[in-house]
């Protein structure tokens, strides 16, 4: 009896999860499916996942050649890499100080970090735009990078992870002659690799997909990251041509999916042992 009820509950749970997952994954599948179809099939009344006549090669070639998509991708890689490197360089020492050093006001600082986690990035867009204008950074790579180099999320994640590392390790390191910065780079960060990977994925995904800030910060096509590029691409060249557009979207999303699948294990470990469950 009890066994029966349990399996029914399990079934219900899996059903619910399957439905919610479908909400997320169906648009992706639809996107990939459209990228394989010729234009006349895209607006067909009947639905099929696979095309009757394959148009993949044409769509993908068009996507890569009709716009500077490779350039957008390289921009994306460059911007994301610079952002994530700066974020780690800045967040790790801050997180170490908040987790392991005792100084007056550290709770206040940590609470400030938590508060800033709650502020949506759009709220800061205008002040940041004015700042970038005053500094003469608009329409440069620097404009795309500078608002993100200090990440409250990164500070929070690293701080939670560093908190779980025993004080004895820090004490041992001090006795072994390490400076506080050496402790951060040689002891804490290597021990926090799961958190590091989880945070890097968050950061890279977030900034690879970011459309809002690049839209404000840059105008010239040479600086555009992939989503902004795709948008420009839609307006100027293809108009209503959904096949190549979907092909372009697939190309843009593919690296993220690939990286996530490779790093999935660390990603989950980093988040769960970092304190958020």
């Amino acid at each position: 009896m009890k066994h029966c009820r349990l399996s029914f509950r399990t079934l219900g749970r899996h059903g619910f999860l399957a439905i919610t997952t479908a909400f997320v994954i169906v648009p992706f599948i639809w996107m990939v499916s459209l990228s394989l179809k010729p234009p006349e099939e895209i607006f067909q009344a009947s639905f099929s996942l696979l095309p009757q006549s394959w148009h993949a090669t044409q769509n993908y070639i068009r996507a890569m050649t009709a716009s500077p998509l490779p350039r957008f991708m390289l921009n994306g890689v460059f911007i994301c890499a610079v952002i994530v490197v700066f974020q780690i360089l800045i967040c790790a020492p801050i997180a170490y100080a908040l987790a392991k050093l005792r100084f007056p006001g550290r709770h206040v600082f940590f609470n400030l970090v938590l508060v800033s986690l709650l502020i949506p990035s759009q709220v800061l867009a205008l002040p940041l735009f004015i700042l970038a204008y005053q500094l003469g950074l608009l329409n440069t790579y620097a404009a795309l990078v500078f608002p993100f180099v200090v990440s409250p999320l990164g500070i929070f994640l690293f701080r939670q992870f560093f908190n779980t590392i025993s004080d004895d390790i820090v004490h041992a390191a001090r006795l072994d002659g390490m400076s506080e910065f050496t402790i951060v780079w040689r002891i804490m960060l290597p021990m926090a690799v799961p958190a590091l990977i989880a945070f890097s994925i968050f950061s890279v995904v977030g900034h690879w997909n970011d459309l809002f800030w690049p839209l404000i910060a840059v105008r010239s096509q040479e600086l555009m990251p992939p989503p902004l590029g795709l948008m420009a691409f839609k307006n100027e060249d293809t108009g209503i041509d959904y096949g190549p557009l979907m092909a372009g979207s697939t190309i843009v999303v593919a690296p993220l999916v690939l990286v996530f699948l490779l790093a999935q294990r660390w990603f989950i470990e980093g988040l769960t042992s970092g304190g958020i469950k």
């Binding site: 025993s166 004895d168 390790i169 041992a172 001090r174 072994d176 002659g177 390490m178």
Partner: peptide, 15 residues
Amino acid sequence: KLRDVAMVFQSYALY
């Protein structure tokens, strides 16, 4: 570092 002492911890505190 400068006190010329070494310590062995209960948790060993190995890296």
